[in-house]
């Protein structure tokens, strides 16, 4: 499957990762165009259900990125996020969703280059998963 048709959703915290993605843009770092970024105030705002909702709606991959542990703008939102998202990650195989389609990580406001690399790598990873197991979308009706 060509990467242009991949659909990847990213939940980025406003203070670190969104700013990091901005930084990558300011440095004109080329990235795959399959990512749609949704801005949230904090990775702690990301209800794991939003990730599942994205998969239900047919996302090929979901990325969540917050401030590095210890650097959360709100003190400890990313620590809560880490617990919730790790649990989610480990539940995905039970649901039959390849855990390679989901990634959570930490990118700071100054890590533009790291962000660009991350998007490239994650897109590649989703691409590989997609080749192995296409058609993720939960079908409405059983044919």
């Amino acid at each position: 499957m060509p990467r242009e048709t991949l659909k990847i959703v990213g939940f980025l915290c406003n203070w670190c990762s969104y700013a990091g993605a901005d930084m990558a843009g300011m440095a004109r770092m080329r990235q795959p165009d399959s990512l749609r970024i949704i801005r949230v105030p904090c990775s702690g705002r990301v209800d794991p259900l939003l990730v599942l909702k994205a998969f239900q709606e047919g996302a090929d991959g979901v990325l969540v990125s917050g401030c590095h542990p210890g650097d959360c703008h709100y003190g400890n939102g990313n620590y809560f996020a880490r617990r919730r998202l790790e649990l989610l990650k480990r539940m995905l195989p039970v649901l039959g969703i390849d855990p390679g389609r989901f990634h959570y990580t930490w990118v700071s406001a100054s890590e533009g280059a790291r962000w660009a690399r991350l998007v490239e790598e994650f897109t590649g990873q989703v691409e590989r998963v997609q080749e192995a197991q296409p058609n993720l979308k939960i079908q409405s009706r059983i044919p």
Partner: peptide, 16 residues
């Protein structure tokens, strides 16, 4: 309950 608290050393399982 575990999801209502955290431990800064939680990263024992590593970043995903």
């Amino acid at each position: 309950p575990p999801l209502l608290t955290f431990n800064i050393k939680d990263d024992a399982w590593g970043e995903s």
